[in-house]
């Protein structure tokens, strides 16, 4: 089973705020596949830093509004 990432995101919400942009439209805008956008939205795949910036730029918001890092008490986890 794939290990869930500690990075959460608001891509789904932000897509709807951006004129209900579809996953396919976002994928095309940043040169990725729709499957990758689905995986990122579901938190199953953490994109590269470059891809994260491109997603934020495509949604016209700062990066920290798109992605958040979940803190845990144990730094090793």
């Amino acid at each position: 089973m794939a290990k869930p990432t500690r990075i959460t995101n608001n891509i789904r919400t932000l897509r709807f705020k951006a004129d209900e942009m579809s996953q396919a439209a976002l994928a095309e805008k940043i040169g990725m596949t729709r499957q990758t956008i689905i995986a990122v939205e579901q938190g199953r795949y953490s994109p590269s830093l470059e891809a994260a910036f491109m997603i934020a730029r495509a949604l016209n918001v700062p990066m920290e509004e798109v992605f958040q890092f979940t803190e845990t008490t144990d730094p090793t986890k």
């Binding site: 994928a27 095309e28 040169g31 596949t33 499957q35 990758t36 994109p47 891809a51």
Partner: peptide
């Protein structure tokens, strides 16, 4: 399918 090969495919 407007699909390309991206970083996830590579991974």
């Amino acid at each position: 399918d407007k699909e390309t090969y991206d970083e996830r495919d590579n991974m």
